[in-house]
Design a protein around this nucleic acid. Structure first.
Length: 592
RNA sequence: GGACCGGUAGUUCAGUUGGUUUAGAACGCCGCCCUGUCACGGCGGAGGUCGCGAGUUCGAGUCUCGUCCGGUCCGCCA
């Protein structure tokens, strides 16, 4: 059966006079009693179909149609009469005078309107996702996603990368996020884990002689969700043998640039490289938004001998910092706004938010307004004004305390202020963060890898063991507009180095053997030097579509509590299924 | 695990210090009218477990507690 001869959105003046058949949904209907207009919608767009009463049967049928009915319409294309052209519609110069109408399917009254003017809550959208996805905004997001994935594959294939799939039913990895587990029927009491990433497999593939690997890898992490985090997500996973960090960085820079050009017609200019240490110093974060011109200034040294305890204590403590964030013309911020900012930094653990309003910098202390100024010596103030280079009308915020708290709170404040005062200077600002430390001390007090335990330190085993916290790595993160898009590293390919790292992390040999003995074994059998990276595909699309949430670029996403409102997953299993899997459900009421 | 915001008609929302109308509006829906609209228009109509459960009160959409759902964030996400 031939449904259609033409697509709705593609019919134009050239087709005038032709008999056409179109299919699609009734996007909107306008029933004037004596004449009925339908805007018919298919993948390509809209076209107006006109039903006249002289064709009685068809007209009666059209009267019975409602929004989102699925129709097959036949008719003659004609140029619209004088004065009825719609310039907002691609096909607005023509219309179809209907001669025949077949209703292919009806539709219940919609739970929400699909046009771009109506706003709908996310709960309703997710429950009726099939309708939500019909909306123009979602259509264009999902279509861009497909276009980008196509473009990425093209680039990677052109560069000689080979797409290889790795298992979803696999084994729990060491540390990291909580795993999603799948019970084994054939091994009672045993479980597969869904991969948090294909890290170990891709390194194994390097040992297998596939020198350039990539995969659109589905990854699973059972952790609490955020606007940019879903329990299952897609990574563009890349690994190459016989390359160094710069090879990977260059390849990925080329790839991202090309994809932006091909899909958005955007030229990403340069990708500056910042060291981890620089990024923390200037922005308080390892994923700075470089569209934002604001920078933190370290003013710790000025307060070493101050009487003002709030500042002098951190000034004399090694794991503390005092940073200033100067907002040009920020003096106009209301008291209320400053209070809001104070509450805001409080969520990151800051005890307060000191500030100085600059009325007239030439007057020194007298030209300033601040609740803290009376506690600070004139001489310190003078030095402060010089090093911050403040101007009339500015406001300076201060963070003083533990490094982590100051960095977390001021980096977040930097983003918020830029948003509130509309300070962003460009549309796109990619960058690379390099020279990550190998380890850090986590809040638990334990030494943990910044990236992962398979990242190669730059130093020798001897130096590494001597002071692990000093070791830097060839790890690199790509950051776009303040979002960590992806990251990677040069990997350890020497089993002795790998053992040394595991030892520092207190992962004993038995545990290592049990969890990833196969990788260590592969390292011992001629594994080449290799490096790679993974990019968060969903986040990339979120940025490219300027969406506020990753959910808007995933066809069927989960809610913040990791459920699917359309399918109602997760759901209970039957007792037969549980028996087969040797599982028993605890009495849920008995818990606690 | 924690903080905060929200939940009222199909949808998006309003609902005053707790009480006066029968809990409203817009859009949608249904009916009638309308031959050039394009977010058509006009007239009329239907539509509510105020998320759920307790409590305070003479009286609760409104206050309190608990709970569920959605969202933002902290923790968490090597």
């Amino acid at each position: 059966m031939i449904f259609r001869t033409h697509y709705c959105g593609l019919i134009d003046k050239q087709d005038a006079g032709q008999e056409v058949a179109i299919v699609g949904w009734i996007h909107r209907r306008r029933d004037h009693g004596g004449v009925i207009f339908f805007d018919m919608r298919d993948e390509t767009g809209l076209v107006q179909v006109v039903y006249n009463p002289d064709n009685k049967e068809t007209f009666a049928l059209a009267e019975s149609c409602r929004a989102e009915f699925v129709l097959l319409s036949k008719g003659i294309v004609r140029e619209r009469p004088e004065g009825t052209i719609n310039p907002d519609l691609a096909s607005g110069e023509i219309e179809i005078i209907a001669s025949e109408l077949t209703i292919l399917n009806t539709s219940l009254a919609l739970p929400f309107q699909l046009d771009e003017h109506a706003s709908v809550g996310e709960e309703t959208r997710l429950k009726y996702r099939f309708l939500d996805l019909r909306r123009e905004a979602m259509q264009s997001n999902i279509r861009l996603r497909a276009k980008v994935s196509h473009s990425l594959r093209n680039v990677l294939n052109e560069e000689g990368f080979l797409e290889i799939e790795t298992p979803l039913l696999t084994k729990a990895t060491p540390e990291g996020a909580r795993d999603y587990l799948v019970p084994s029927r054939t091994y009672p009491g045993s479980f597969f884990a869904l991969p948090q990433s294909p890290q170990l497999f891709k390194q194994t593939l390097m040992a297998s002689g596939f020198e350039k690997y990539y995969q659109f890898a589905r990854c699973f992490r059972d952790e609490d969700l955020r606007a940019d985090r879903q329990p299952e997500f897609t990574q563009i996973d890349i690994e190459s043998a016989f390359v160094d960090a710069n090879d990977i960085i260059n390849t990925v820079t080329r790839m991202i640039s090309k994809v932006f050009k091909e899909t958005l017609e955007v030229d990403l200019e340069d990708f500056p490289h910042l060291t981890y240490a620089e990024a923390i110093e200037k922005y308080g974060t390892d994923k700075p938004d470089l569209r934002n011109p604001l920078e933190l200034v370290e003013v710790k040294d000025l307060f070493i001998n101050s009487d003002f305890k709030v500042f002098s204590e951190p000034a004399n403590s090694d794991d503390s910092r005092i940073a200033a964030l100067c907002i040009p013309m920020g003096g106009s911020l209301s008291r209320k706004k400053i209070d809001d900012y104070t509450d805001f930094v409080g969520t990151f653990g800051a005890k307060g938010l000191a500030y100085i309003k600059v009325d007239d910098p030439s007057k020194g202390k007298d030209g300033l307004q601040s609740p803290i100024i009376k506690f600070i010596d004139e001489s310190i103030i003078e030095k402060l004004l010089v090093s911050l280079d403040v101007k009339e009308g500015d406001i300076v915020f201060f963070g003083a305390g533990k490094r982590k708290v100051v960095n977390d709170s001021l980096s977040a404040l930097r983003d918020l202020v830029a948003q509130d005062l509309d300070l962003l200077t460009s549309e796109w600002a990619p960058c690379w963060i390099v020279d990550f430390p190998m380890f850090e001390i986590a809040s638990s007090g334990l030494i943990t890898p910044l990236h992962h335990p398979f990242t190669a330190p730059r130093c020798s085993i001897k130096e590494l063991i001597k002071d692990p916290l000093l070791a830097l790595t060839d790890a690199y993160d790509i950051v776009l507009n303040g979002t960590e898009l992806g990251g990677g590293s040069v990997r350890i390919h020497d089993h002795e180095m790998q053992s040394a790292v595991l030892k520092i992390l207190n992962i004993n040999q038995d545990e290592a053997e049990e969890k990833f003995g196969f990788l260590i074994l592969a390292l011992k059998h001629g594994c080449p030097p290799h490096a790679g990276l993974a990019i968060g595909f969903d986040r990339l699309i979120m940025l490219m579509t300027k969406s506020d949430s990753i959910r808007d670029v995933i066809a069927f996403p989960k809610t913040q509590t990791a459920s699917c409102l359309m399918t109602n997953a997760p759901g209970p299993a039957s007792s037969e299924q549980l028996d087969e899997l040797h599982l028993k459900i605890q009495d849920l009421n008995k818990e606690t």
